[in-house]
């Protein structure tokens, strides 16, 4: 049976509650936007397949609850992620300041080589902006992470953010494979299995509760 994809990437969205994680994911997966705010409870995911350099890449994107009370549940998902989007809200200073805490969370819980990206969301709300683009860029430079401003509402840079992250993961993975298998004779559908297993048990099986 023909495989439906070449790569499966697990991505994670984190950031304070209300910054627009769910909205970004909703925009990316459904190309839609909802003005009302329904705070995420626990964790959820969406899947979207994209095309990268002729490869079908399946993105399983996990959307976490930003609220403090779900922290233990959501951190359990860091480990298996290959890419993490750190989202803040450009109209909310606090959410920007908290990015540092989120990065610390990643350092403590995610695998070391996880790809990261900072998103400054709601950039359509220019009038209410509290965090300048420069400060976002500066922070990104500081941590050596890619940065982009997005608007889930206006569908600005959402696609490109995910594509960029996916492309980086793909590049990193291919580099690793090249290193471990210089012949590079690969056929579709085997990449995932070739990926070295970091832990004997699945990253997910440890979390008993959402």
């Amino acid at each position: 049976m023909a495989k439906t994809y070449d790569y499966l990437f697990k991505l994670l969205l984190i950031g304070d509650s209300g910054v627009g994680k769910t909205s970004i994911l909703f925009r990316f997966s459904e190309d839609a936007f909802n003005i009302s705010f329904i705070s995420t409870i626990g964790i959820d995911f969406k899947i979207r397949t994209i095309d990268l350099d002729g490869k079908k890449v399946k993105l399983q994107i996990w959307d976490t609850a930003g609220q403090e009370r779900f922290r233990t549940i959501t951190t359990a998902y860091y480990r298996g992620s290959m890419g993490i989007m750190l989202v803040y809200d450009v109209t909310n200073e606090k959410s920007f300041e908290n990015i540092k805490n989120w990065i610390r969370n990643i350092e403590e819980n995610a695998s070391a080589d996880v790809e990261k990206m900072i998103l400054g969301n709601k950039c359509d709300l220019e009038a209410k902006r509290q965090v300048s683009k420069e400060r976002g860029e500066q922070l990104a430079v500081e941590y050596q992470i890619k940065f982009i401003e997005t608007s889930a509402k206006d569908s600005l840079n959402v696609e490109s953010a995910f594509y960029t992250l996916a492309r980086d993961i793909k590049a990193k993975m291919e580099k690793k494979q090249e290193a471990s298998n210089p012949a590079g004779a690969r056929t579709g559908g085997h990449q995932l299995r070739n990926e070295p297993q970091r832990k004997p048990t699945s990253w997910l099986s440890r979390c008993s509760l959402l």
Binding site: K58, G80, G189, Q197, L204, L209, L210
Partner: peptide, 28 residues
């Protein structure tokens, strides 16, 4: 997300990750 290799010679001895992901998600 299932990605079975139907000609697998040696099973890994571990459940497939989509299954474990799914079960933990469900129990959550």
């Amino acid at each position: 997300l299932e990605n079975y290799d139907w000609l697998l010679v040696e099973p890994t001895g571990q459940a497939s990750s989509f299954v474990t992901d799914m079960l933990s998600y469900l129990s959550g």
